[in-house]
Design a protein around this nucleic acid. Structure first.
Lengths: 117, 117
DNA sequence: GCTATCGATTGACAAACACCAATTCAATTG
DNA sequence: CAATTGAATTGGTGTTTGTCAATCGATAGC
């Protein structure tokens, strides 16, 4: 993160001149912002946020068959939301026979959480 | 938040029976999830996340004309992103003459931040 | 009043998204 | 093997999103 920026006191400049000097863009931190935005985006849906909430409350692993009936959407939709969360590194899953168990990845939310203070 | 959920140990049930008892869905917390998801969604874009980052680092108010050159998009796009953040209650703005100054709303990120622990 | 500038708004477009019905895959039981 | 079940995938649809060019409203200086 950290974008450098000098906060010049604003005042009318000569016509033709731009209002402020162009500030160099440090894309060093672009990757960090993109990672955190990906996680935030994954949490940016009420169902996904509640899925994560349930998984976090139960420190163990939770069967998809227990998650599905919690929401007013069909099973493929829940499966889709879980995939989004998995792709964002927030949760992961494990198969046990016929069932799939999901759990929160230990540090999946850490970077964003820390940034948010 | 808090979705109640009994974690029954999984085992094969008789054919024809569903895998688990239907769990009542407590939509009491639906609003909370929707509010937080809205904020998370607003942070779910790298540019918006960096906009918030810049505004947070400078505790004061920052002119749009200083924010725009920081990103590789045109002015209307930055304006659009700022509107998304304002609609989510994350930032607010104030006009001073020709300029618009943006700042982070004190508790705009609090609920999500707390939930993320 | 005329002109230039900051920033918001509008309209358009392609890409991404949420959702479902239908299907497929994997594993388990009879 | 055949039937059944949990969960992922596919294909489709309607909606939302990110972006820009063009325009507009407001303010300030000439």
């Amino acid at each position: 993160m950290s974008i450098d920026l000098q906060l010049a006191p604003k005042q009318r400049r000569a016509p033709g001149k731009p209002c402020c000097e162009p500030v160099v863009y440090p894309d060093t931190e672009r990757g960090e912002a993109e990672r955190m935005a990906l996680v935030a985006k994954a949490l940016g849906d009420p169902i996904r946020l509640q899925l994560v909430d349930v998984l976090r409350k139960h420190a163990g692993k939770v069967c998809v068959c227990e998650l599905t009936p919690l929401f007013d959407v069909e099973q493929p939709t829940v499966s889709h939301h879980l995939k989004v969360l998995r792709d964002a590194g927030v949760v992961d899953s494990e198969r046990r026979g016929i069932w799939a168990y999901y759990y929160v990845v230990p540090n999946g939310l850490k970077e964003l959480s820390t940034w948010l203070r």
